[in-house]
Design a protein around this nucleic acid. Structure first.
Length: 494
RNA sequence: GGCGCGGUACCCAAGUGGUAAGGGAGAGGUCUGCAAAACCUUUAUGCGUCGGUUCGAUUCCGACCCGCGCCUCCA
């Protein structure tokens, strides 16, 4: 079965086939690097990352490009406020973005920066002017003439045919031909960052950069363009207008939009006090793997209600999968293999693929893996599972994690990094006791832990349970989880 | 006002014109010196409300109620 994806352009779930055999060219609108990213941003980026991972798992070569918007009004404003250059300002937040995406398990796309493509953007505008699609306003800004592109509105399903020119012209937009016409190129205001180009001084508009960079990297027509649902209009609509009126070709064939999330049942906003950056959550003691799991557990087109209760549940779910993997890889099973477990592994892989093929139904894919875990655990308990069954089951789990990326067990180091960042930024007050404990637990050395465990085991052998229990309590409070299995003691950090 | 999405158990959340996945939490049990892990049993005659179509609807249609999104910067 082939992948079927919802396409905003057709409002339908369609079979996804790339233009070129075996190669997918996709573009995602990335961050404007003016602040720390919030969990809503990351829902989108994780969804696109998951798509990209699944495409590769399905055998495609994926060329995935993401832009970094490193010049815009907010950046200019904030840089001025902080009395640093635009470049210094964006460098900081680009670094933050890269750290955050790595923390949340996003594989790095090929990144392109707006400020590194200024000449191409100016050239793009010049070509649109030549075709009389763009025009220059008195102040030196350039606008796109929407009236020249009759298909305008086809993505967002808006009808502009009845628009009355000038109906909503505001003071700043007095010299546009039509109020709806959008800026391609903004003339510099005093003190603003600007570039000297053949079309005059200024800086690119946001819509322009995505058109120019995506076509430069992927060609005039490519397979898929992604972003948050809010970008459908006007951003993506404008990209289409610019690009297609210049090339006369279909710009992107599939439009992939990720729905906004809710936080505790309400729209996330600073006003409501439910606005969280990724780092805020880690400061509260939540693991990156829990956050990623929660953000992938609801299919990307459904509204996801992000709650702290859900975050705890996600942590337990991830732990269950990790425990299972540990149990399979460390256990001693009788030689041989069973047809039941072999086919269970195969069926589970099939079910996961079928679920993801169905417009990335991550919830179904997770259900499939849990079903496998339960049945395999059951087989282990009843002594049915054989040594030769472990490999295919582990392979199925790996296959799951190639896409979901939650089982790496590298949370401790990531949390420690956030801990240190908070200290460096003077934000130690925001470090929760939970995070403090996590970092503390990580500092107890393996040798020390294993020493304690040896003592505990000696006491247990001597049936001195008071001593062994005391040692175990001590270890547990240091964040170490102890399990006595029939193959010996197994321990791990919380 | 225009366009669009959703309301499923205590919580999160899939799904289908033929009788409700999965996870978490709760309860009981198995195993264990005790825990932990794991497993088993159990928790919606019910899928916002009211009508309609149908042999049969949670699933299709209509109305209504509620929540949410876009239409302006926003992932």
């Amino acid at each position: 079965m082939a992948l079927r994806l919802h396409n905003t352009m057709s409002s339908q779930v369609e079979e996804f086939r790339p233009l070129r055999d075996n190669e997918v060219r996709m573009y995602a609108c990335g961050p404007t690097v003016y602040d720390y990213g919030h969990i809503g941003n990351f829902r989108t980026f994780i969804a696109v990352d998951l798509l990209q991972r699944f495409l590769r798992q399905s055998g495609y070569k994926v060329r995935y490009v993401m832009n970094i918007t490193d010049v815009d009004d907010r950046i200019i404003h904030n840089a001025a406020r902080d009395e640093v250059s635009v470049q210094q300002y964006t460098a900081k937040y680009e670094k933050v973005f890269l750290e955050d995406t790595a923390m949340i398990g996003i594989e790095r796309p090929h990144l392109v920066r707006a400020t590194e493509h200024i000449p191409q953007m100016a050239e793009f505008v010049a070509r649109l002017v030549e075709k009389k699609i763009a025009y220059r306003a008195d102040d030196g800004s350039y606008y796109f003439r929407i009236a020249s592109f009759p298909a305008y509105g086809k993505l967002s399903k808006k009808d502009f045919s009845g628009m009355i020119d000038g109906a909503r012209v505001d003071v700043d937009e007095y010299d546009k031909d039509s109020a709806r016409d959008f800026a391609l190129w903004k003339a510099p205001k005093p003190g603003e960052a600007s570039w000297d180009t053949p079309i005059g001084p200024g800086r690119p508009g946001w819509h322009l950069e995505c058109s120019v960079m995506s076509m430069e990297e992927l060609g005039e027509s490519f397979d898929l363009h992604a972003g948050g649902e809010d970008l459908v209009f006007p951003h993506h609509e404008n990209e289409i207008a610019q690009s297609e009126s210049l090339t006369g070709k279909t710009f992107a064939r599939f439009w992939f939009h990720v729905r906004f999330l809710l936080v505790e049942g309400e729209k996330m906003s600073k006003r409501l006090g439910n606005f969280y950056t990724l780092r805020d959550l880690v400061l509260k003691g939540h693991k990156p793997s829990s956050i990623r799991y929660l953000l992938t557990s609801v299919p990307y087109r459904n509204q996801l209600n992000f709650t702290f209760d859900g975050l705890k549940q996600a942590a337990v779910s991830v732990e269950r999968l990790c425990n299972f993997r540990e149990r399979l890889s460390a256990g001693n099973f009788p030689a041989g293999s069973t047809p039941e477990m072999q086919s269970l592994a195969g069926e589970s892989v099939e079910r996961m693929k079928a679920a993801l093929d169905d417009d990335l139904n991550t919830a179904q894919a997770q259900a499939a893996i849990f079903e496998m875990v339960r049945r395999a655990n059951s087989a282990i308990d009843s002594g049915q599972l054989k040594a030769g069954d472990a490999a295919p089951l582990l392979a199925a789990l790996d296959r799951f994690d190639e896409v979901f990326a939650v089982l790496n067990d590298d949370d401790a180091a990531k949390m420690k990094a956030v801990f240190q960042w908070a200290l460096a930024e003077g934000r130690e007050k925001e470090i929760s006791t939970e995070l403090r404990d996590q970092v503390q637990a990580d500092q107890t050395s393996n040798v020390a832990i294993e020493g304690k465990i040896a003592e505990m085991e000696a006491a247990r052998k001597a049936r001195n349970f008071a001593v062994s229990d005391a040692l175990r309590t001590e270890l547990v409070s240091a964040g170490v989880i102890i399990e006595n299995t029939k193959d010996g003691v197994r321990w791990r950090r919380k």
